[in-house]
């Protein structure tokens, strides 16, 4: 249990650093550390497959692409957008009200009962595969179709319309 509290503290600490870091590249690096602590959480819950997939997909692929994009952007002080003072005040008020709403709604929920798994080995690859492809086959396939349609949509947005006249450079 003490391991959990230590890792949970690290997760929150790094995620605060993500939003408070001045340099966007540093904030991505803190985000990588945050995801790494999530991987440790999954291992503590004996969900090996989820842990390693979180490691490969989020830490290894998606955040590399984030970093890739940020490195290509010109990150000078001059290009930083300067927001007017009133907008900042409004943002603080809006954020505060949202926080109050969230806290009050969580309070009305009461303390959640911790779910006790019938099978503690559920997170291992073999059991997870059986559950996904027997009990939850339909939702699994539907979500894969959803991802495919998103991919096709992205390709469609990226390709230029052939009928449109080419822009002269």
């Amino acid at each position: 249990m003490s391991t959990f509290y230590f890792i949970a503290f690290l997760s929150i600490f790094f995620s605060i650093l993500v939003i408070s870091a001045k340099n966007p590249v540093h904030s991505i690096l803190y985000l990588i550390l945050t995801f790494f602590t999530f991987t440790i959480h999954y291992i503590l819950m004996n969900a090996q497959f989820l842990a390693i997939v979180n490691f490969i997909v989020y830490m290894g692929a998606i955040l590399v692409l984030f970093l890739y994009t940020l490195m290509l952007i010109n990150l000078n002080k001059e290009s930083e957008p300067v927001k007017p003072f009133m907008v900042k005040i409004a943002a603080v008020f809006g954020g505060g009200i949202l926080a109050v709403a969230l806290v009050s709604s969580l309070k009305s929920l009461g303390v959640s009962d911790p779910v006790v798994l019938k099978n503690p080995e559920l997170g291992l690859v073999k059991n997870l595969g059986k559950v996904l492809f027997h009990e939850f086959l339909l939702p699994f396939e539907v979500s894969s179709v959803l991802l495919l349609s998103a991919m096709v949509g992205a390709v469609l947005l990226a390709t230029k319309d052939p009928k449109e006249p080419k822009a002269t450079i």
């Binding site: 590249v25 497959f49 390693i52 830490m59 290894g60 590399v64 291992l124 690859v125």
Partner: peptide, 25 residues
């Protein structure tokens, strides 16, 4: 002998690119 050994190798490989990226940047 963890039961996701191959995926562990993949994780390590995908982490390897950070060394190059961070150093280059």
């Amino acid at each position: 002998d963890i039961n996701v050994g191959i995926l562990y190798i993949f994780g390590v490989v995908s982490l390897g690119v950070y060394g190059v990226m961070i150093g280059g940047w």
